[in-house]
Design a protein around this nucleic acid. Sequence first.
RNA 1: GGCCCCAUCGUCUAGCCUGGUCCAGGACGCUAGGUUUUCAUCCUAGAAACCGGGGUUCGAAUCCCCGUGGGGUCACCA
Length: 565
Amino acid sequence: MAVPDASIVTRFAPSPTGNLHIGGARTALFCWALAGTLGGRFLLRIEDTDAARSSEDSARAILEDLAWLGIDWDEGPSFDAGDRTLGGDPRAVGPFHQSHRRDLYHQHLEALIAAGRAYPAFDTPAELGAMRTQAEAEKRTFIYRNRPADPAAAVERAKAEPHVVRFVAPDDAVVVVDEVLGEVRFEPAQLDDFVIRKADGMPTYHFACVVDDEAMGVTHVVRGQEHLMNAPRHVALQRALGFRTPTYAHVPLIFNDQGAKMSKRERDGAARQAAKQSGFDLGATPVAGLDAEVFARWLKDKKRQLEPDQLEALATALGIELPEVSVGEFRAGGYLPETINNFIALLGFTPSKLDDGSDRERFDMAFLVSDFDLARIGKSNARFDRKKLLSFNTDDVTGMEPSVFRERFEGWCARFMPEIMDRLTDAQRAVLVPAVQPQSKTFRDAADRCGFALIASGEIEHDPKAVKKWLAKNDNAGLGVLGELKGTLGAHTDWSAGALHDAVERFAGDREIGLGQVAQPLRVALTGTAVSPPIAETLATLGKDEALVRIGLCLVVCKPRVGSA
RNA sequence: GGCCCCAUCGUCUAGCCUGGUCCAGGACGCUAGGUUUUCAUCCUAGAAACCGGGGUUCGAAUCCCCGUGGGGUCACCA
């Protein structure tokens, strides 16, 4: 890490209108890492100037997601992350919610009007819409520049009438110097007199952002390339206000499988496609909270989105998994925060090489905070490859120290799969959890593999394919083995996994059959399927009584019917 | 459509700035074998790319131009 430099400040400034998106997480991560390599501080600001769409719940959720990822902010809203406290205001530059900073914006805005660099405008939305339509009809780009002939009169009129305040765009070209893209030039003909204060008195994003970056001493602005067209506006505003221009870095976007900006619509798209493919009939399969008309409209219109819970319910009805897009969804999906950080850092950024000259792909936060460099950010957009993420996550889950795995997995279960904690004893989990770890790609995957221990023996559904292959085949060889096993296991007393492992092996050895010929019929009996954790641990988790009940039950349920093949 | 950005294996990328060491390297995925009591792992091998066209140069993935393709953005949203 670099020598501490108190003058360096990076910031992440989300707007609290939804969950933290994976792209936002990457931006935050880069800002955090940059502050680290430069020895500066990382600041978090909540951009809630849109009163209607912002919510404190959303702001809170974003804070929690960032803390979960370990993207700790030095300054910003205070947050108790359990083992550490984040945020605070040591330099007294807060508050960090823009909705609480209106006086500051107001001061600068008045100064701008007084300097003749801003003016009240009284156009109604309908009038503006008409101007745009006309411009479009004439194949012109709509550029608003209706400056008042008499500014003083306009200011006077503004005292009594609803209005917005617009910025007087500069007459010169604006050149944005960007650390990633180089110099980007914007001609004055494309700069319009954009709105800097809305009719409700709130500043627009552009104005609040520029004022706050100055007031908070932000030196480096790292954000997605979708903001590139905002940069000339911000630079022009800074000049008019007499502010510094921070260092800009517009990082490439994260794409989805379709090659477009990854967004929350992803999930709607996946569900829509599945619904169309399967010819889903809402009439035949009602979905809670979703009425037919809404569904039909949503099905037709690609831009339409369902409410999150409607979407979840529909996905369940369709029997599909929705693709994760927000950090919370990846968390619920059982991904590790360190893996997510590692993976998203690789989207657009290339770390220094390994000593053998190959690409360095796996690294932790400590590495990132010392190796991050804006010069190593690429210019082209990157597709989000879920398979590669899964591969990374698998490595990290299976490579975890078993005791650590158990602690973290159970922590995840407590939140997302409480049955595992409620229904299994500590002793059962002590056997099952380590058994499941080497097989699991995610915590959710691990939890799924524990499922057999959660159901009652009567609820077991014996998979016909598994029954046929492992019990009925070869003149019911599997059923025969199972019958013998019932006796052998019934007489067996030590139900530790180790002893059971030996017992099963001895059983197979005595009969000179492969272990598979024993384990598979047992799996079918114990779980109803051909897949389970290693057989000894499966038996041990269930316990002797339950295991024997399941075997007995299977023998009855799956016995060959007289007269049928 | 205007403006802006981008362009190496299917995907993420190295190399490009400072032309030759690149018949282009790594990773995920894919294919084929192998290990394994199931699934998942794991091991070995393999296929797989410099968008097209012009220049500049002894020599271009690397520099320049044009074309094509992709993306972003055009709100009293951020």
